[in-house]
Design a protein around this nucleic acid. Sequence first.
DNA 1: ATGATAATGATATGGCATTATCAATTAAAA
DNA 2: TTTTAATTGATAATGCCATATCATTATCAT
Lengths: 127, 127
Amino acid sequence: MERNTRQRTAIRDAIAVANRPLLAQEVLDAAQTEVPGMGIATVYRNIKSLVEEAVLQEVRLPGDNPRFEIAGHKHHHHFQCTQCQRVFDVHACPGDMSRLAPKGFTVENHDLTLYGHCKDCAAAAAT
Amino acid sequence: MERNTRQRTAIRDAIAVANRPLLAQEVLDAAQTEVPGMGIATVYRNIKSLVEEAVLQEVRLPGDNPRFEIAGHKHHHHFQCTQCQRVFDVHACPGDMSRLAPKGFTVENHDLTLYGHCKDCAAAAAT
DNA sequence: ATGATAATGATATGGCATTATCAATTAAAA
DNA sequence: TTTTAATTGATAATGCCATATCATTATCAT
């Protein structure tokens, strides 16, 4: 991946604009508004190289396929809407977790996923 | 699944004794100490019916295949050792998460995974 | 603008977890 | 113990995500 193609740009931009982690298929859907004929293989190829270049980073949620977001964000967590399944960043954190583990265990990191209704779905449900 | 077979008993007992969530393959390995010739299909078949009967419950960790533990535990979280990959229960919880989500989002549930070294691996590393 | 070659799109293939198939076995009712 | 049918074990089939293949297209140094 040494050339700047319309597809590569559309993929990176789609993820940057979404401002939330996207599945490969979501990246394709978003990038196709810019480059209509784009294929899924191109998405996987470019995601892979963009991760290797540390432009993107992978986000794994329990039971889901990998999502990708722009790299470099500081420590944060994720929220998944149980209705639309979309994932959003959560920039708050409960803080130190080392006291939670059993005695003898050392905690080096942690992942937190919140579940509920996103703003859009909560608003729709309230009508 | 209406009959009590040696295999079914061995599978349920293996998960109960382990006292931590096990992968299908880990269940097979553990159950084979009781029923040597057991096949992986039998493990999947019995896990599936035991989950339907609410004897077992599924545990999903980011990026991993499903694990299974005895159902009925109260709210708890999990710890995964970054060395041996085993998963352990964590019975502590940071508490209410509703304030962490962005405005307009409603939090109904949460999953927390701690990463680090388990007691065994931490002790081994200290030598 | 041209040529070398990287990238794309369509699709075949791979990899892996899980499920389906089926003859042989085994539980358990009679 | 005999009988009946559920269960097992071996393995083929499935499903899904991701990668490889390859002819065609597009980038970009010259």
